[in-house]
């Protein structure tokens, strides 16, 4: 009886919310552009900036090679751009899902349903991950096919590597959703966070270019381990579990953050209910 109730209050709503978000998103034709064209065109600006700095025959790539540990700046930047985009879209779709509900005017209705409120965020995150996973793989395939991405590792290992970051993303988005329930407007926070991640995790440049203090902070963020893992597999090959320490750190911190996120979300839920902050903008 207990498990049935758990299914009805959490699992079923998670999939319902995910399916709802997938249907709403794919209803607009612009979704195709956003999901399949953007991952392909987005890395262009960084690749061409890199080419402008590297020169026609790689004359200016020496400093970059010393910092990044590879002269293949194109693969380095493509992987970084795609990961940045993956995180960014998940922040907008998953982290801001409750704020989007407010804008649509459906937040109050959903909030009063007899289901776990956590399911609203987990479902939106699931939809976001599902909608963005395939385009990322398509983009990697595209760049590998045109020869701009030197794909040494296998795509299966890349997919496995992407799965290791899911607990961290889920935990982070739960914390983030808790903030949006409490403070309502969080669009600016997304803008700031995505740039902070980009800088401290070295998504679009080699982390070694940062001052040592910032490098140390970056090394503590699971996303830094994730981008290193994906870059290593793509550029140098090998398997995910060759990097056991990084995988353990990603999964461990991800599970801990997910638990923390769920607790934070529940505390905020109680707080906004008792202080009457559920409705209104």
């Amino acid at each position: 009886m207990q498990s049935h109730s758990w299914y009805r209050r959490f699992i079923h709503p998670v999939f319902s919310v995910a399916w709802r978000d997938i249907r709403i998103t794919t209803r607009y034709k612009s979704w195709f552009v956003a999901s399949f064209i953007w991952p392909i065109i987005f890395p262009f600006s960084l690749i061409f900036l890199g080419q402008g700095l590297a020169g026609p025959d790689g004359e200016g790539v020496e400093s970059f090679t010393a910092l990044a540990g590879t002269s293949d700046y194109s693969s380095f930047l493509i992987v970084g751009s795609l990961v940045w985009m993956f995180v960014n879209i998940n922040l907008w779709m998953g982290g801001l899902s409750l704020m989007t509900d407010r804008t649509r005017g459906t937040f109050d209705t959903h909030w009063t349903m007899p289901v776990s409120k956590l399911a609203l965020v987990v479902g939106a995150t699931l939809a976001s991950l599902a909608l963005n996973f395939v385009p990322m793989v398509v983009a990697i395939g595209f760049y590998a096919a045109i020869g701009w991405l030197e794909m040494t590792g296998s795509i299966v290992q890349v997919i496995l590597a992407i799965l290791t970051v899911v607990p961290f993303l889920l935990g982070f988005l739960l914390c983030f959703a808790a903030l949006t329930v409490r403070f309502r407007e969080a669009g600016i926070l997304v803008q700031v966070l995505r740039t902070v991640f980009s800088i401290l995790c070295g998504l679009q440049f080699p982390l070694a270019v940062l001052p040592p203090v910032l490098q140390s902070i970056g090394a503590a963020i699971p996303l830094t381990h994730f981008i290193d893992l994906v870059r290593t597999i793509v550029i140098h090959g090998g398997a995910v579990f060759d990097h056991a320490a990084s995988v353990a750190y990603l999964l461990g911190s991800g599970i801990a953050l997910s638990a923390l996120g769920a607790i934070a979300f529940e505390l905020v839920r109680r707080s906004v209910r008792s202080s009457g902050l559920v409705t209104g903008y």
Binding site: G50, G52, L53, G55, D57, S63, F64, A68, F205, V209
Partner: peptide, 17 residues
């Protein structure tokens, strides 16, 4: 940071080429 990783003092041999 990407620019200075290629051109530490803003001087790029690549751009010159």
């Amino acid at each position: 940071f990407l620019i200075v990783s290629f051109a530490p003092a803003g001087q790029s041999i690549g751009l010159d080429a």
